[in-house]
Amino acid sequence: MMRIMLFLATNIAVLIIASITLKLLGVDRFTGQNYGSLLVFCAVFGFAGSLVSLFLSKWMAKMSTKTEIITQPRTRHEQWLMQTVEELSREAGIKMPEVGIFPAYESNAFATGWNKNDALVAVSQGLLERFSPDEVRAVLAHEIGHVANGDMVTLALIQGVVNTFVMFFARIFGNFVDKVILKNEDGPGIGYFVATIFAELVLGILASIIVMWFSRKREFKADEAGARLAGTGAMIAALQRLRAEQEVPVTMPNSLTAFGINGGLKGGLAGLLMTHPPLEVRIEALRQRG
């Protein structure tokens, strides 16, 4: 889950900076009459935000989680971790990713990177200390599955599409408020800018529901990949261990507690904005598959 949240945070930051800059420079002054030009304009900046997020994903993940990259294994555990990732990567048909450990008590892991041959796989210190070797291997296989499936690239494309339409319809709404409701005929006024920002916030939440739905679907695919690479029994055991630890007090910041493989799903509207399905649903899906 970490790779998704860091990606979205970077994407939103890029879009906000681009939107403010365009307004200050007077570039963002579409009247809504030329929808083709407006759509191209929104596509350029919408995809720019998602692609910049994609290329910065590894750097953001390292900095925000304080992940320490293993360049030369110093302990038996680090050596085993490197060998396991190398073996799983070879079986998955991808280049060996960077391997790291981040300081967190909770059991978690993530994978990110702009393409499957330039990725990062990291696990928490807590996971390494409390999980069995087979369970750690299954978690690593799950993350390798994300990389091999190209989930980050697909996410970037989906995010670029939703960014485009959020910007497009927000500006149409802003123009409607400015011209039709406020009867402003002197060019975009304050009503246009306020209405556009409001619409971007509302549409952005709706767009996030689409992205989160995609993320939940990809978790099932990564679980299947983990089961193929490490064994269905080991993958189920790892998810069961994660579920058992959901009641363990978390020492990571709130902004990171739901970012990795260990992510639950709440009911109602909150469930639509979660990146992971419930662990019990994922376990049952693997049992039916196996």
Rank of each mutant, 00 (worst) to 15 (best):
97 P>A: 13
97 P>E: 12
98 E>S: 08
98 E>F: 04
99 V>Y: 08
100 G>I: 10
100 G>Q: 12
100 G>C: 15
101 I>E: 03
101 I>D: 14
101 I>S: 01
102 F>I: 11
102 F>D: 11
104 A>F: 13
106 E>G: 15
106 E>P: 02
106 E>H: 09
107 S>A: 07
107 S>G: 09
108 N>Y: 11
108 N>E: 14
108 N>H: 12
109 A>Y: 10
109 A>C: 06
110 F>W: 06
111 A>L: 13
111 A>E: 15
111 A>K: 02
112 T>P: 13
113 G>S: 12
114 W>M: 11
115 N>P: 10
117 N>F: 05
117 N>Y: 13
117 N>E: 06
117 N>M: 05
118 D>G: 06
118 D>C: 10
119 A>F: 06
120 L>N: 10
120 L>G: 10
121 V>C: 11
121 V>E: 05
122 A>C: 12
122 A>E: 02
123 V>H: 15
123 V>Q: 09
124 S>W: 06
125 Q>D: 07
125 Q>N: 12
126 G>Q: 02
127 L>K: 06
127 L>V: 10
128 L>I: 03
128 L>A: 02
128 L>N: 08
129 E>M: 05
129 E>L: 05
129 E>H: 01
130 R>W: 00
130 R>S: 11
130 R>I: 08
131 F>S: 13
131 F>H: 04
132 S>D: 07
133 P>M: 08
133 P>E: 02
134 D>R: 07
134 D>Q: 14
134 D>F: 13
135 E>C: 06
136 V>Y: 02
136 V>L: 09
137 R>S: 09
139 V>E: 07
140 L>A: 14
140 L>V: 11
140 L>N: 03
141 A>P: 04
141 A>G: 13
142 H>C: 11
142 H>R: 00
142 H>W: 03
142 H>Q: 06
143 E>K: 05
144 I>P: 15
146 H>V: 08
146 H>Q: 05
147 V>W: 00
147 V>C: 07
148 A>D: 15
148 A>R: 10
148 A>Y: 01
148 A>W: 00
148 A>Q: 08
149 N>C: 13
149 N>K: 12
150 G>C: 13
150 G>Q: 15
150 G>K: 10
153 V>T: 14
153 V>R: 02
153 V>G: 01
155 L>C: 06
155 L>S: 10
155 L>R: 02
156 A>E: 00
156 A>N: 00
156 A>D: 00
157 L>C: 12
157 L>P: 07
157 L>D: 01
158 I>N: 11
159 Q>L: 07
159 Q>W: 12
159 Q>H: 03
160 G>A: 01
160 G>H: 02
160 G>P: 00
161 V>R: 04
161 V>D: 06
162 V>E: 00
164 T>N: 05
164 T>S: 12
164 T>R: 00
165 F>H: 00
165 F>C: 01
166 V>W: 09
167 M>A: 04
167 M>P: 12
167 M>I: 14
168 F>S: 00
168 F>L: 01
168 F>C: 09
168 F>E: 01
168 F>R: 01
169 F>V: 11
169 F>S: 09
169 F>D: 01
170 A>F: 02
171 R>G: 05
171 R>Q: 08
171 R>A: 03
174 G>R: 08
174 G>Y: 08
175 N>C: 10
176 F>A: 04
176 F>V: 12
177 V>L: 03
179 K>I: 14
